[in-house]
Design a protein around this nucleic acid. Structure first.
Lengths: 168, 168
DNA sequence: TTGAATTTTCAAAATATTTTGAAAAAAATA
DNA sequence: TATTTTTTTCAAAATATTTTGAAAATTCAA
């Protein structure tokens, strides 16, 4: 079964890459499983598909919802909760970028601001130190605002043109 | 001693943040120590300053050189090797972005390309699967090329204007 | 209400990563 | 060359993170 094989490879690859850049492997695997699934899935299905424990599934489903990558779906007549992934890959990328911006850039900007506050440039040494702090602050704010612009840019002119060009 | 305190806070903060986004804590601490140091330092000095083992220092110094964030400096009359950090923070940011692009985006592009190769769209299911793979491919290539353009942009018009605006 | 089904929690176990430190290798000196 | 200094390596230890699974909490139907 060739498709099954490709899907497994996809899930495995996604999980491996994720760990290499600081994201939990299981979270990535659950995400890709749902991304590839036409139907929404419940915890038991995910458990048996990925061979992981209930607690693990539960915890990572909640994280994925926090990241805005999956949604809870309540099926009429079903007691169990079902989950479905956001299938619009541009939205997915946007969410990931947003979350990483929040986690990686935000705290850095705050930390540099605190350091700036605390030190008066009354010696050459302190000026040196503040120069570095200021420079990092500047670059970080630059990265932050660049990313924000990109994220706010209307995807319809920014991406759809790229999609058209690359997808054919 | 206020400056010492601020420097320690800087080193500590940098180290903590780094772990939160997948970079080794010690590597980040050594980097910030060198970034804040006017003089180059040798392994023994770094060991005693950060209270870490020789092996750890050695390994992380090599990683930092791989990242292009520090340089080896051979001082005349000295047997020991000295290390000095790149102080141009824009260059530092550029190096970090390059390295992360190489580690995070490159493998993803490759993996998606492999999957595209391996599957023929001869059923609706396979077409579905390939759509996702293609979309990820597209978004990833887009991110890659956007980042590449930013990195290639001449810093003198792109950044220095920002620096002037924000630094005052 | 009660009780069965489902989800959540969290301490302990398993796994993965980082750090140590001493031995080996390499480099410099005499 | 032999000796000393310095750097590198890497198995074992320490630490950190992830996963498990059973108990507790919650939800829902009757």
């Amino acid at each position: 079964m060739e498709l099954k094989e490709a899907k497994d490879k996809f899930i495995h690859t996604w999980g491996t890459l994720a760990t290499q850049w600081g994201i939990n492997r299981t979270m990535a695997q659950i995400h890709s499983l749902l991304l590839l699934s036409a139907k929404s899935m419940n915890a038991d299905e995910i458990m048996s598909e990925l061979q992981i424990s209930r607690g693990n599934v539960n915890m990572n489903l909640r994280d994925l919802m926090d990241w805005g990558l999956i949604y809870k779906q309540l099926l009429p007549g079903e007691r169990k909760e079902y989950f479905i992934a956001e299938k619009d890959v541009w939205k997915v990328a946007k969410q990931i970028a947003k979350e990483r911006r929040r986690r990686e850039i935000g705290p850095l900007i705050d930390a540099m601001a605190d350091l700036k506050e605390g030190i008066k440039p009354d010696t050459a040494e302190k000026e040196e130190f503040l120069k570095i702090v200021n420079d990092i602050s500047t670059v970080t704010v630059f990265a932050d605002s660049t990313l924000t612009s990109l994220l706010k840019a209307d995807e319809n002119w920014l991406i759809s043109s790229f999609v058209k060009v690359f997808n054919r």
